[in-house]
Design a protein around this nucleic acid. Structure first.
Lengths: 231, 231
DNA sequence: CCGCATCCGTTTCGATACTG
DNA sequence: CAGTATCGAAACGGATGCGG
């Protein structure tokens, strides 16, 4: 069983050996959102062959990124969960997702979409510094059962899974993921959005103005092609 | 020419399509450290076939991550440089490298090592918040011509390439990369290090105490295998 | 030399089928 | 449900060749 190895004494190369193969980082993404069974992953990844998924899971377990957790009968099952090492990949996944957002484009006909991913999408832009203490519940069409909370606070914005919508000052329902992000980036005004019906708000509509303060969609920019790169 | 595509509507998947193939992220790493020629990259990557390197460079250019820059005669050459999109991969590379550090281990006999990489290694741990205003020049054995400066300041620690060692309060010479990091993490005391000769210091030795304040080597920790993952 | 293009043996992937 | 087995297709690694 040949394990690929870059012959480089470099931490980046080591990381790439572990999570750099096809599908692997996407497996980590799905497990960051919660424990999953083999078939959950297979469906969510939309198109991995069972053999490759099996091989990846085995390798990730070897490298102590994930672990198996057997669920007791009555309904026995194997759950894959992240180890503490695996959970430390969250910043990596968020930075990569942030970078990838620019090239997301429109959804193609047979692009798979997993409602859960929205949580990660929001976490990608969660502001790190202090944000207004405010809780917004978010629900997106086509992802009704995967609502979540955006919770502002001293230590930054937190994305919380679950349906404790009673805790929220506002319940925001959007027609599509991009509507949410357009709203947060300021590209779409609340007035426009409500008027055109792409969002529906329950609660204090005015309080929705804080959304851009909870999510930092600022496009990181630099000048074109300077000779030196900053490191 | 078939371009691989994950059929997923997810920014992480898009990012993985662009930088997720073998060698690609390592190419970006090398270009983050400065413009490179084809043969520089080939040597630095230590083991890519020319065809694969060529294919990757072409693909990265298509995707606007890198660009070609022709150097004028007398010595014509093609330089590969990062575009602004490519430079925005720096946080990704740093987070991945940080994660990979845990599995770096000892250097194997035929592991390639590029002195420049040390700059990235330090940037990986550069503290983000305000740090003491202090400039430390660093030189590591085997990487003499790739010295750099660690510059503390209000906006965090900066890693600066070059040999303006005159600006530095201290010049630190270490026998190996890991010695530097052991020193920064506190695993090795300055007294021990100087006594055993693994480092040599010019200038105010006492000022070297700030090193752990410039570099944040704190091991991110969490409890073992909790059911929920935080996003 | 430098930047590839081509050829070829080996590895990896993807789709389908099959099993405990 | 959770994988293994199989097999053709694609990708990779190494060597060689070739124009600028």
């Amino acid at each position: 069983m040949p394990v690929f190895r870059y012959a480089q004494y470099c931490p980046l190369a080591r990381a790439a050996e572990v999570v750099g193969e096809r599908w692997t980082i996407l497996i980590v993404r799905d497990l960051l959102l919660g424990p999953k069974r083999f078939s959950d992953l297979k469906r969510s990844l939309g198109g991995v062959s069972a053999s490759v998924l099996s091989e990846r899971l085995g390798r990730l377990e070897e490298r102590d990124v994930i672990a198996r957790s057997e669920v007791a009968p009555p309904t026995p099952a194997t759950l894959y969960i992240l180890t503490s090492s695996g959970r430390r990949l969250l910043p990596v996944v968020l930075e990569l997702a942030r970078w990838g957002t620019a090239m997301l484009g429109a959804r193609e006909p047979n692009d798979h979409f997993e409602p859960e991913w929205l949580r990660l999408g929001c976490a990608t832009f969660a502001r790190k510094g202090p944000t207004p203490a405010c809780t917004i519940a978010v629900r997106v069409a086509g992802a009704e059962q995967a609502g979540f909370l955006l919770v502002g606070g001293e230590s930054g914005t937190e994305v919380r899974a679950g349906d404790q919508f009673a805790d929220a000052a506002i319940i925001l329902a959007a027609d599509a993921p991009m509507t949410l992000f357009a709203l947060a980036s300021g590209g779409l005004s609340i007035a426009q959005a409500t008027a055109s019906g792409v969002i529906a708000v329950e609660g204090d509509v005015a309080a929705l103005e804080v959304l851009p303060e909870l999510l930092d969609m600022a496009p990181a920019e630099t000048e074109p092609h300077p000779p030196q790169q900053g490191v």
